[in-house]
Each structure stands twice: as C-alpha cells, then as structure tokens.
Design a protein around this nucleic acid. Structure first.
Lengths: 368, 368
DNA sequence: CTGAAAGCGCTTACAG
DNA sequence: CTGAAAGCGCTTACAG
C-alpha cells in the first residue's frame, strides 16, 4: 500500500501530522463522518464506524485538542488554583493524596488537571476569569473554602462549571462536595469522653477556613452536650504554631487532659512539646488528630486520628465535577441543576491508637 | 460610540467572544497587524501598536489558546508526570515546595503546568508520546531519575523539549538540572566525623533512584577516605520502612553512633524507634537527614538536615525548561544546544541542630 | 444514514 | 512597514 497517492502536500509540510482528512481519504468517506465515528456519535453505520476506527488506529491518529477546542468541543481539562503559601503544600499529608485521587478519575476520562498557585484570593478569581475567557478549562474545583468566601459570588457571576470542596453550606448556588467535619468532631469528642476525659482542648488551624469554624462550633457544642469543659486554642497551620499553642495550654491554670489537633503535622509537633515537658501521652494528656498519616502511625505512641481517605475524597470530587461539566454542556446557558447540589463525599472514620488508648495493639491493618 | 455598526453576527452568536478581528476593525487595520502587535513582533509601527494594545484592553480581549495552538504557536503549557504511588506525594516536604517553585516561574511567563500521575514508567512514556503528539505541551520536566532510566532513550527518540531533574550524568543527550548529592553527603559525613563519630550508618531510600545510588556511593567513598566505618541499610521510602531499618541497625553487633536518613519523614520515624528503645539522641546515637522540614525543626531534639530550598530548585528547573523550549523553537528540527546542558541548580547547605550537636541553640532563623 | 461547507480565532509566509 | 489570503484540524448545522 503506497501512501503517496494524491495531493502533494501543499505548503512546507513539516511534521506531516495525521488528520481526520487522511483517515477519511483512506476510508472513502468525508471527514465529518470520521468526526462522528471517533466521537461515538450517531450518524454513521456501525460498519463504517468500525472501519474508521481501525484506520485511525493504524495511522496512529491523535486528535488535536486545539482544533477540537476551537471548534467548540470541550477542552478536556479542569483547573484548580491554590491560594496558599507554597511550602504548605508539601507539609500536609492530605493534599497530595487528594490530588492523586482527582487525577485518577480524571485520567480515566481522558481529562487532565491544570494547577496554579497564586498568592491571594483576588489572583485566584482573576485566574478563573481568564481560564474561562480563554476556554482553557471546562470547569474548576474550588478548595480551601473560607467562611465568607469572595470566590463564591465571583464564580456564580461567571456562570461557569465550578465545584466547591467544603461545607456543608456556604457554597452559594454552586454545587459542592464535603466531608462532615461535625461528625468527625463528634467521633473524637465522644471517644475522649468515653475514656473519661473532662477537660478537652482543641488546637485549631487558621480560623478563616470554613472547616475550622465548623469544627470549632461542633467541638464546643458537643462538649457542652456532654457536660465537658471544652477549650479552643488558635494556631495557624503548621508545626511551629501548634508547638506554641500546646505550650500555652500546658502553662494554663487547669491544663486539659486531652488535646485534639487539626492536622497530623500539628499533632506531631504538639506531642513533641508534651514529651519535652515530661508529660506522658496518654497517661497525663491524650492526643488525637483530625488527619492521619504514616508518621502519625509510626509515632510512639501512635496517634489516634480521623481517617478521611483523601484519595477517595479526590475521586468523588473529580467524578462530581465531571458531572457538573457535562450537565452544563447539555443545557447551555440554562441554570445549573439544583438537585443534589450538595454531596457528602465520604464518612470520616476514627482510628483509635495508643495516644488516647494505651490498650490498643497495632492491628494487622497497621502493618501494611 | 455605538458598537453595532457593521456585519450582523452570522450564525447563532452565543457568547459573542471578542477576537482580533474586532480589534482590527476598531483600529482600522488588518487582523494580521493586530497579531503582530499583541505578540510584540516587528511589523507594525510603535504608534499603531500602542493604539491596538489600548483597544485590546478596552475590549477585554483574551487570546484563544486553542486558536494560537492550532496556528502553530506555542501552547504555553509544560507537563510533568509522576509515576509514584499517589499517597507518597503528600508525605514528602520536598515535593510540594518544588512544584510551588516551578509554578512561580512558569506563571510569571504565562505558562501553566499540567500534571499527571500514572502507575508505571511505561504509562509515563506513553503520556509523553501523546502529549507531544497532541501538542498539549511545549515541553516536559522529568523527575525521579532512575539509574537505568527507560524514559531517557524514549524522550531522546521523541526529540521534543525535555528537561531532566537529577544527576549529574545519566541523562543521555537531554539537558538537566541537579543538586550535588555527593556534596551533600560529604557535608553530612564530615560533620559527623568532626563530632567524633567512627561508625556511621545510612538508611537509604529506594535504590532504583539515581540520587540514592549516588548518595550510597559518595557515602561509602567519603567514609573510606576518612577511615570511618560506613554501613548501608536499605529501606523503601516512607516512615514504616525507615522504622524497621533503624530497629535492624540497633540489633546489630556493633550499632552505629550516628545515622543519616534519606528524608525528613524517615528521620522522624527512625528517631521514634531510637527514643522508644531508650537510645538517647544525640548522646548514644546522632541523627541527621537529607531533607529538612518544619517537623524536623520542631522535633526534639531538632534534627540536623541538609537544606536544599526545594522552592528554589523548582524555580531553576522552570527557568531552564523554558530556555530549552524556546531554543528548540528557534532552530526547529535542529539538534538541541549542547552547551551547558547540565546545570547545577543550587548548593546544598548543612543545618546543624541538636540531633548531632546538643550545644546548638536555636538561632533567630529557626524561630520564623 | 451520508456529503459538502462554513466556521472556530489565530499565525505565518507572501506580495505590495 | 502594511494588506489580503491561506491554513492549522476539527465540529456542527444543513441539505440530500
């Protein structure tokens, strides 16, 4: 089969990319038919579709995302922008796993993820505006939801597919997925109460984040319900702030007998301070974390933590975002579907370890 | 100024996007002139260029990446694919900071970063192939360099802009950036030798990685030069493997008096094992890490570590990749420039702390 | 179910 | 320095 049959390539043919025109020529159909065939759309018979697909594979054809996008098709990319100090990303066990979960689902649907790090909410909003104006993305996922988040009204006004990670509530008319922080809080408090603790402190991360506020609220609420003394101690995010907060708790009039930290990093830093001060864990003070990680497991005592399966959380998020994107595509311009606009991604789970319960033996699931 | 002057929009004008044609009409020039003007290319007078730019801003014009790409311009995106278990990303302080450093430089040049997580080197190579075939990216950055890395020949064959992070050496004909692991190793060993240690162990990560092999080699070499007893203990990456390796070292005939770990996570896990076994740090055994992090600082004793400024490393990488991309664009098809094809990104720096030297007082730089 | 055409929004030679 | 045109590789109505 000689490939050089017709039309000597006009112009300076560099690269000589395979296009649907090449496939059409070989198959003896028009390029429109090829388009329908490879996109699995009705309009061609099953027989020709099969033939076209075979030729496409034979020719090693790869669709041109640029051409597709220019012609109005989805660009098969979703975006996520992060407005946090760069270094923080590396210090959180949660984030990498969440991204991995996102990627897994997106890749399976041939979608890619575009990420950008900026240094302010304004820059973040501006990025959304430009991404959509340029048609760089089909939708975005919004993380680090804040209590009074300026991104929500901005995205509502843009009217483009966006999925909010966080809640419940506070996501305006945008669809969202969330993990129930109130429930996680209850699991922790109840567990500690069962172990006989009456004075519990919570070392909390940045209060601007919605989930921090929700944890605070649930914490104080649950403590009140159970007749416990609940104490809040603000800290930024990060090891050093947590260490300072822990030291402060120790120096108080009536130090707590249990401390709950907002992340694994904070719990580890706090535990160091306790150990250094000669405080036994959990003998004198019990320790627990809202975030699990390998270090939380290998630490001695191993740290009781909430497991959230960040990978799964990411997966649910991606799945939902893709739904939102295709729904928006279906009825363009129409309002985003209201039904089920808020989805609980997964259930938090309490992993009890030595730091709150010395009787715990590392089970087989801890060994890997 | 009425906007409705000419040509009633043909077709079903939805969205009514602003294009260079609109700008051209307003400016009384051709759209080609607009293209030249907004791309800062010669061919239009300074006066018209200024006028065009003003109109573009007035009209809120955003270039269409799809149209640009289709017409042959760069797509302003670089890619990075990761073939590691998803969860690992979250557990390493290095990675997030590295990505942040990349982003910072890329964003400033209006480039974006596309990331993908896959589960094998084959899938990674396949991703490169498709990315370039589809013209999704202008170039890629290759991380986690392995000793005998199949990606190198694959990328050489593709002949597309790619920058290898790692080395020195082992990057074939591709350009690379690296941090001198041999030097870092020497800093660590020399420091421990100065403190009087004669039996030093190194708990090493996955030996498939080139930098692990280079550290191994440098470690044994430097120990030999100084007449020390150097011992290698293999471990995967991650807390649990490091804990096991540390326990093994302790149970040996002649336990070392100092242990160097390949990452902060490993050093923390190993330190736990030591503490649990009643081994004093640094009294009985000194501990050091190839990777610094907030937890390494807040740990007690604070852990001596190599500082690499992952953010800066990422920045240098991005800068170099952009150079490679534009060089490739300049002389298309021609060979990639050979000169300076291997760049040392930055100098490792030893941060001495209590875990090797109890006399260290936390300096003002440790407080933040 | 299939064919021929217009159009997406740019860039790039190529004449003037 | 400027104008008119072709072309990048698809998709999408619109006729047959």
């Amino acid at each position: 089969m000689s490939t050089s049959s017709s039309s000597p390539s006009r112009g300076s043919g560099r690269g000589q990319r395979v296009t649907i025109a090449d496939i059409a020529r070989r198959a003896g159909v028009t390029s429109a038919a090829v388009s329908l065939a490879v996109n699995g759309r009705p309009g061609v018979s099953e027989a020709t579709r099969t033939r076209i697909m075979e030729i496409a594979r034979e020719l090693d054809w790869e669709p041109s995302p640029a051409a597709r996008a220019l012609a109005g098709a989805p660009v098969l990319t979703v975006g996520m922008v992060l407005a946090r100090p760069a270094e923080v990303l590396g210090n959180e066990a949660f984030f990498g796993a969440f991204v991995a979960g996102l990627q897994e689902v997106l890749s399976a649907q041939d979608y890619s993820l575009q990420m950008k790090i900026v240094d302010s909410p304004e820059a973040e909003i501006d990025t959304y505006r430009r991404w959509f104006a340029q048609r760089r993305v089909d939708g975005v996922v919004v993380v680090d939801l804040r209590v009074d988040d300026p991104r929500i009204p901005a995205l509502e006004e843009l009217g483009q597919p966006a999925l909010v990670v966080g809640g419940p509530g506070n996501h305006g008319s945008l669809p969202s997925v969330y993990v129930d922080d109130a429930h996680a809080t209850q699991l922790l408090v109840d567990h500690l109460a069962e172990r006989g603790h009456r004075r519990i402190a919570r070392v909390a991360g940045t209060s601007a984040f919605l989930h921090t506020a929700q944890r605070d609220h649930a914490f104080l609420g649950r403590c009140a319900e159970l007749g416990l003394h609940g104490e809040l101690q603000d800290a930024g995010f990060g090891a050093e702030d947590a260490a300072v907060a822990t030291a402060q708790l120790l120096s108080g009039q009536h130090p707590p007998t249990a401390i709950v930290f907002d992340s694994d990093e904070m719990a580890l830093a706090g535990s160091q301070v306790l150990a250094e001060s000669g405080v036994a864990i959990p003998g004198d003070i019990a320790v627990a974390s809202y975030e699990d990680s390998p270090l939380a497991r290998t630490h001695r005592p191993a740290i009781t933590a909430i497991g959230r399966s960040a990978v799964e959380y990411g997966g649910v998020t991606a799945t939902r975002l893709l739904e939102v994107v295709s729904a928006a595509r279906r009825h363009r311009g129409g309002p985003v579907e209201e039904a089920e606009s808020e989805v609980r991604a997964l259930e938090p789970e309490l992993r009890v370890r030595d730091s709150t319960d010395p009787s715990q033996q590392p089970g087989p699931d801890e060994v890997r």
